[in-house]
């Protein structure tokens, strides 16, 4: 009975990720895709918030979108899991609802 939240906007440009984090409940998962993958990286002004959220919820990031943008998967915040397209499908299949924070 869980929800998979997908976020695809940069946390530096839009408030989608903030809104999502404000509406996630226990047992939900979040996957960062497209321009939202920048939120998964260490050393940024949103890292602390994401590291904190990763302690409460399962947070994943789509690997091919990181690679497209030249971002090193090794720089992903501890507690955030890198998944491929198959992993994305598994997350969606495991969840009762998918909520896309467009």
């Amino acid at each position: 009975m869980s929800t998979l939240h997908t976020v695809n906007k940069s946390p530096f440009e839009r408030s989608n990720l903030d809104s999502c984090l404000g509406h996630v409940v226990a047992g939900d998962s979040i996957i960062l895709i497209e321009d939202a993958v920048y939120a998964a990286l260490s050393g940024t002004s949103v890292t602390a918030r994401m590291a904190d959220a990763a302690k409460q919820f399962r947070i994943c990031v789509l690997g091919p979108d990181l690679q497209a943008r030249g971002m090193d998967t090794g720089a992903v915040i501890d507690g955030i899991t890198v998944v491929d397209y198959g992993g994305f499908v598994d997350l969606a299949a495991e969840s009762r609802v998918v909520n896309a924070w467009l």
């Binding site: 940069s10 440009e13 321009d35 920048y38 091919p64 690679q67 497209a68 943008r69 030249g70 971002m71």
Partner: peptide, 23 residues
């Protein structure tokens, strides 16, 4: 500036998302 700095980040590899690397 802003997210525009990501445009000139090294190492773009968009093959996996089916897009052309224009960097």
């Amino acid at each position: 500036l802003d997210d525009g700095v990501y445009e000139i980040k090294k190492g773009h590899t968009p093959k996996g998302v089916g897009m052309k690397n224009f960097s």
